[in-house]
Design a protein around this nucleic acid. Structure first.
Lengths: 154, 154
DNA sequence: CGGATATACTTGAGTTGTCAACAATATAGC
DNA sequence: GCTATATTGTTGACAACTCAAGTATATCCG
């Protein structure tokens, strides 16, 4: 007894559940249909949207909310499959870009066909467009702190 | 280009981000302050709320959205720390209960002090009570399918 | 220039979880 | 009662991360 139930905690609990449920489902779908993880998919998508279809590994990590280490490992898989290539940077020998290959773009397109449809149908079933917008708005307010580097407030 | 941006997909993306951000933060807090994982905490909480402070492992798994295998492993840790005990079931030799110990309850109380406060302050900072309620409502509409066992519709 | 410090990335070790296969017990139908 | 099937739980093998430490390169500043 006396164990909470404030609106804040309910919201957080809802977030945990909703994430586990949706993520599990879409990940399983992607793996079964295309041999891609949800993270793999996210990475391919980010690359496809980036200028020249390439991104520094650091930036990629930030965008998909992974550590640099995680990105190295994830990209190793995608490189192995020929979906991404490692491209050295001319002006800075430390950085190497992750470059989406034509194969990778093809894979992304094929995967997105079913994945996007899956998302649209699951969310479309349960929400109106207005609700989806407020959901995005609300979720978007939660901060992503990162590491506090450039979050200086001086 | 032409890569989507439908309201459904934006909502899903928001969900992924929001989960990663909040989860990472609270998990780090819990580990640092109390040596508990967020999952550990969830399990202790469920047990504390259950009748007699015990639950079958299967039911626990379902409540915290883990596989039975995951529960076995998680409980191994909690048992090792003396927060949970394994109790055999009289009427069914297959099942063993996970029983919260007084130590476990104490640990939960101590942890909840900071954890609940963390959640309240993060969510309280960004949302009104009305918004929290609609967030919970919206998130709660996403189904948790499980396995389709008893989800029969005949 | 040259040393201190910062940045980009990788790697080894550990964690947390999954899945598939299994053992043990329970239940149902004949 | 006894075999067929379902349910509960564990285990081995593995996947996907994280963290801490290390390497290589860049930049800043005296």
């Amino acid at each position: 007894m006396s164990t909470q139930a404030t609106p804040e905690i309910q919201a957080f609990a809802g977030l945990l559940r909703a994430h586990a449920a949706t993520t599990r489902r879409f990940n399983a779908e992607l793996v079964a249909d295309h041999g891609l993880t949800l993270s793999d998919y996210e990475v391919l998508l980010r690359l496809a949207r980036a200028p020249d279809r390439r991104l520094r590994r650091v930036d990629l990590a930030q965008q998909v909310l992974l550590t640099p280490s995680g990105i190295t490992r994830l990209l190793a898989g995608l490189e192995h499959n020929g979906f991404v290539e490692r491209v050295a940077c001319q002006s800075d020998a430390r950085v190497s870009y992750a470059q989406l290959t034509p194969d990778g773009l093809g894979k992304l397109r094929a995967a997105s066909k079913t994945h996007v449809e899956g998302i649209r149908s699951l969310f479309g079933e349960h929400f109106t467009v207005g609700e989806l917008e407020s959901l995005s708005d609300l979720l978007g307010r939660l901060p992503v702190d990162d590491a506090g580097d450039d979050a200086c407030e001086a």
